[in-house]
Design a binder for these strands. Structure first.
Lengths: 125, 125
DNA sequence: TTGGTTGTACTGCTTGATCTAATAATACAT
DNA sequence: ATGTATTATTAGATCAAGCAGTACAACCAA
């Protein structure tokens, strides 16, 4: 499993990690049950911070691409291949898009829409 | 018509203007057809910029609380009282709230929700 | 028992980007 | 003189991204 980080890339490091691991799952390079490198080791190999790798792992586990088993290590999820295709970002975009359109049609300015959004995001901190 | 600006207030100046004028309409201090002070004069009296007052007037006209008649001046709208009760902010908040809840329930982090939002707001510039 | 490894969690910090609010200075037609 | 519009700029807040350090429970091998 070859992972490389391009600091000049527009994409943040943790996003590059997520993309590459998902890609490896899709291509079949990573199959269900395989062990992934420990957070600290991968961070060390790439010369980046452990938190950055942990952040990527956390998202990947939320998306059920990997499974963390504590001291035992982290492994590729049984349904990794199917779950690697699901793009939460796309789903979020479409939902958010319809909402913004609705508010704009109501005559609200972008400034007011932003105010409403930030207010909601703060509410349940 | 007494208007005062509190710079220490959390609310932006233009929002304070909007709130106070709407309030004056609701209480009956401002009735349909009454003339409002010119933008430049009100700005001068309050010691703030003309653009700030113009911004408030623009929103008030959009909400049909006031009517701008060019060189003739600006006046209280015929339906000002009814339109001052409508709270666009409340409507926007409830719509935005359900959307954010939906996305959070889908497992998205606040960070990702923010990314989706800013992406949409940029899309149709 | 001792020491090391695992994922996880937390706080604090720096950097850069972005947006808002407000100001400033014009300009225009009526 | 009126509302309207434009462009540019400043200051402040907010957030993402990443780094740094620390800590913990669970476990394993020596």
């Amino acid at each position: 499993m070859e992972i490389s980080i391009d600091t000049s890339n527009e994409l943040p490091m943790f996003a590059q990690l997520i993309a590459q691991i998902k890609q490896a799952v899709i291509t079949g390079e990573l199959t269900a049950g395989l062990a992934l490198p420990p957070i600290r080791q991968l961070a060390s190999d790439l010369g980046i911070n452990q938190n950055t790798v942990a952040k990527a792992y956390k998202v990947l586990e939320r998306d059920k691409v990997i499974v963390a088993k504590g001291y035992k290590g982290t492994f590729v999820h049984d349904d990794a291949k199917a779950n690697s295709v699901i793009d939460w970002g796309e789903k979020a975009l479409s939902i958010m898009d319809s909402t913004v359109l609705k508010l704009r049609d109501a005559g609200l300015t972008d400034s007011e829409i932003r105010l409403a959004f930030t207010a909601i995001m703060k509410k349940n901190h």
